[in-house]
Design a binder for these strands. Structure first.
Length: 731
DNA sequence: CTCTAAGAGATTTTT
DNA sequence: TCTCTTAGAG
């Protein structure tokens, strides 16, 4: 037992050993947050009279949940079986499966991921004859999720003021009805339905409230309103809610996260235990000084200052490049130098604000033959071929799932065109049944082809009856014709391979004890029946996007957005593209609280680095096909000057590289000059305006005395000034 | 059904 | 500029 608490600092120790009361742990970046959370659980079970079944811990990602489980298992001799550890969605799914009848869902309800949901919305729009131009499906989807995450059903949504909201509400109502008919649930639905289940069913509510004496929440600053309401409902009079979070790392407001939950929690639960973890074990002093200085510019904070017992370390290296191409090339050269210094490539990360920026960097790394890995992009279970295969499997489990039906009814092509499908949809709608049911009774010539499809799926179901899961999957990808289809395709080799990988995933799923435990039912209700393996696997596939499915690969430089770097750490970090308009992003400046969120994002970026940090920006950048001239990010100004080391001498362009030459700024400048010799400033030149300060000349508009000059004043935005009257001087 | 052309959109992302 | 989606022709 003493070993459990060894090597904790006083604050960590205090947090871990708090009495069973509500607590809020403000855990700074790199302060040992996960350690506190896991040790707390282990300690509770070890010393208190807490059984594993009394613990519920919730995270945002499967990765975090898995990590937590592994670490607890390592600390405890006891089985972690009875514990509920998972994501919000995973735990809600578990509860809904166990009590599907009370929740009004079929036991094998299917989960719509974002893609499925979008397709679903489109279908509803079409059925309602709504113009997709006036009501873009994506916006409708966003509207629906927004309402759900506020906990609102269509009839509870405030009547819209404008046309869009009024109509969107009606669409939401139709959407809601249709999902109920088909027995499917989108992501926010899992939470909302579970919330409603607990709210309405007093027996269940009191049961779970009495059971979960300890509820622990990770990344509390990222919870949305519905998640907080769910937690409030789950926490009974005897429960202790232990929330860990960092308001300075709240970077997901755009997807509904509500930092205000931290303050609300403190107030509503009368939290007496607020503990700050401020000692950082990750970064050198200068990196923390930079992070602290930066974040101090934010006004709405709970307040926190990171410190370290490690030394100051190196200064932060800052680099100004002429173009984004030079910037990328410099990064590549620097990476090579680092490799010579002995840094492992996987310990080097290049961060950027938006995905589009990776292109140039990839090009430079590729040219320099530096192995790299880009994070993000399509995940395993989101791939077309995998989704097709899953759709067949889903039809076996729930034939009324129209989304899956439509996805594969004519894939691989079997002569069922849009007209047949439309006829089928009409028939289904007029009779109020699913496409599957309508298909069974459809006549005519299209009826024959559709009938063949129905028979195919039916046979598939019969012939896989009782088979082990991996064999079911194998049989389905084969007999559906998917494998044959992709084998015949020119570039289908990868897809065939992924289909095979899906069989492996099913086998791995069956082997993985943890996932079996995850979806196993506990005896909490009379209607608790063991969940069919196929249903469990399908839920797993929807809830776990399959990040880990891709191979980890060789020792490679890590490229990712700042968002996806959250929670990770590296020896060396490059933060690239530090330009006004990019980082902070120009769209954020108009958003309420947008700039502060950008600053938190920068804070996250800075605190990823352990020993060395590079900051860079480019004076010009190719964006949407046009050269944009920008200023250095204000965030650079917000860092203490004395810890910055400016690197001079930009990298030399490689003249033998065609792509490089295309990015050279010189030809553009020449063209601009020759067109109008008399222009006082070059394009891209820095100028000073007495009122607006420093800016960069972007372009000239018009002719003669009417001529205007377009200038980027950075944080003041773009301005058009009359050239003859504007009091401009070269900087 | 497959191929091509034209058009829109182009922060950030997990479940 | 580039990429993804969709509409229309063959």
């Amino acid at each position: 037992m003493p070993s459990l608490l060894d090597n904790l600092n006083p604050e960590q120790l205090q947090a871990v050993t708090l009495p069973s009361q509500h607590a809020l742990i403000l855990a700074g970046a790199g302060s040992g947050k996960t350690r506190v959370l896991t040790t707390r659980i282990a300690w509770l079970i070890h010393t208190g009279n807490v059984s594993p079944a009394g613990v519920l811990a919730v995270t945002f990602t499967n990765k975090a949940a898995k990590e937590m489980l592994t670490r607890i298992s390592a600390m405890l001799p006891v089985s972690t079986r009875g514990m509920w550890i998972g994501t919000f969605h995973g735990l809600c799914n578990r509860m809904l499966r166990a009590h599907h009848r009370d929740a009004g869902l079929p036991q094998s309800f299917q989960i719509l991921d974002s893609q499925d949901q979008l397709a679903f919305v489109k279908r509803v729009l079409k059925a309602m004859n709504v113009d997709e131009n006036r009501f873009p499906p994506r916006q409708v989807q966003w509207f629906i999720n927004d309402q759900k995450e506020e906990g609102l059903r269509p009839n509870e949504v405030a009547p819209g003021r404008d046309e869009f909201n009024r109509r969107a509400r009606e669409i939401y109502a139709a959407y809601d009805e249709q999902t109920r008919k088909e027995g499917v649930a989108d992501f926010p639905e899992l939470l909302l339905r579970c919330y409603e289940l607990l709210q309405r069913n007093e027996v269940l509510r009191t049961h779970y409230q009495a059971r979960f004496r300890h509820i622990l929440v990770d990344e509390f600053q990222d919870t949305n309103r519905l998640q907080y309401k769910w937690l409030k409902l789950l926490a009974g009079p005897e429960s202790a809610l232990f929330a860990v979070g960092d308001d300075d790392q709240s970077i997901y407001r755009f997807r509904g996260a509500n930092v205000g939950n931290m303050a609300d929690f403190e107030r509503e639960f009368k939290v007496a235990n607020v503990i700050r973890l401020e000692q950082n074990y990750r970064s050198h002093g200068n990196i923390l000084n930079a992070a602290n200085a930066l974040i101090s510019h934010n006004r709405r904070r709970l307040g926190k200052n990171l410190w370290t017992a490690a030394g100051e370390g190196e200064p932060l290296r800052v680099y100004e490049a002429q173009t984004d191409g030079y910037e990328a090339n410099w990064i590549a050269e620097e990476v090579q130098a680092l490799a010579r210094e002995g840094f492992a490539r996987r310990e080097i990360a290049v961060l950027y604000r938006s995905n589009a920026q990776s292109r140039v960097i990839e090009h430079a790394l590729f040219s320099a033959r530096i192995p790299y890995r880009v994070y993000g992009g399509l995940r395993f279970f989101e791939r077309q071929e995998v989704k097709h295969a899953l759709a067949y499997l889903r039809l076996l489990a729930s034939p009324d799932d129209d989304t899956s039906f439509l996805r594969v009814v004519n894939f691989p092509a079997r002569g069922i065109g849009a007209r047949s499908v439309e006829a089928l949809q009409d028939a289904a709608q007029s009779r109020g049944v699913s496409l599957w049911k309508a298909a069974a009774e459809l006549g005519g010539k299209s009826g024959a082809a559709v009938g063949a499809f129905v028979r195919l799926v039916t046979t598939l179901g019969e012939s896989t009856q009782g088979l082990p899961l991996p064999e079911v999957v194998e049989h389905v990808i084969d007999a559906s014709g998917l494998v044959a289809h992709y084998q015949a395709e020119r570039d289908g080799a990868d897809r065939v391979e992924n289909l095979g990988e899906l069989v492996n995933a099913a086998a791995a799923f069956e082997q993985d004890d943890a996932s079996v435990a995850q979806f196993a039912n506990d005896a909490t209700g009379a209607d608790a029946a063991p969940l069919n393996r196929l249903d469990a696997f399908l839920a797993h596939a929807a809830l776990e996007s399959g990040e880990g499915q891709a191979a980890e690969g060789a020792d490679a430089v890590q490229l990712m957005t700042v968002h996806s770097a959250k929670g990770l750490e590296f020896h060396v970090v490059f933060i690239s593209g530090l330009e006004e308009g990019l980082f902070p992003h120009e769209q954020s400046v108009t958003e309420d609280d947008g700039l502060e969120e950008e600053r938190r994002l920068m804070y996250v970026a800075l605190t990823r680095a352990r020993t060395r940090l590079y900051l860079s920006y480019a004076r010009s950048r190719l964006l949407h096909g046009q050269t944009r001239y920008g200023l250095a990010s204000r965030f650079l100004d917000e860092l203490p000057k004395e810890i910055l080391k400016w690197l001079s001498s930009p990298a030399r362009p490689r003249l033998d590289d065609k792509a490089w030459r295309a990015e050279e700024p010189l030809p553009r400048l020449k063209m601009a000059k020759s067109r109008a010799e008399a222009l006082p400033f070059r394009i891209g030149q820095s100028v000073v305006h007495p009122k607006f300060g420093e800016g960069v000349v972007i372009e000239y508009i018009g002719q003669g005395p009417q001529m205007q000059v377009h200038i980027n004043f950075g944080r003041l935005g773009l301005k058009r000034l009359m050239l003859e009257q504007a009091p401009l001087t070269p900087a």
